[in-house]
């Protein structure tokens, strides 16, 4: 697809369950127990088990891939992990929403500002991507 400055990209909504975090731990190799053990999460002062920051960024990358079609077009993507995404040990999980807006298009490169929220709270900061048009 082509990008125009100011263009709003289709919002994406993803459900995250505790089981997804366990799968992601295995897939990524990040077995930090704060992402699967309530006991360890509590011991370091967290409100509960939280998603890997990289899980949330992977969802932003999934949305970006949906928008651009071919991820080979992506030049860069990144974010700050500003708020934890608490994932309860139930069958419902929590929902992460990803929206994007094209902030500029210059020299064949579109800059995209992503907004990633969970339970109405922005969980990633400075979430930006650059893609080839």
């Amino acid at each position: 697809m082509t990008f125009e400055p100011g263009q709003q990209l289709d919002p994406q909504s993803y459900v995250v369950t505790r089981g997804d975090l366990v799968r992601y731990a295995g897939a990524s190799g990040d077995f930090n127990p704060i992402h699967w053990s309530d006991r360890v999460a509590a011991s370091v002062g967290l409100p509960g088990v939280i998603a890997h920051g990289m899980y949330t960024l992977a969802l932003a990358g999934r949305a970006l891939t949906t928008w651009v079609g071919d991820p080979a077009r992506v030049i860069s993507v990144g974010a700050r992990f500003t708020k934890p995404v608490v994932v309860p040990d139930d069958d419902v999980g929590t929902t992460v929403e990803v929206t994007g807006v094209v902030s500029s298009v210059d020299d064949g490169v579109a800059k995209i500002d992503l907004t990633v929220t969970s339970a109405g709270v922005k969980v990633l900061g400075m979430s930006k991507a650059a893609v080839r048009c």
């Binding site: 930090n32 704060i34 990289m54 991820p71 990144g78 700050r80």
Partner: peptide
């Protein structure tokens, strides 16, 4: 130890998938 570490930010610059 890993569980005393917080991942503050992450950014990728991609040359190819």
């Amino acid at each position: 130890e890993l569980h005393h570490v917080i991942h503050v930010d992450q950014r990728f610059e991609q040359t190819r998938p």
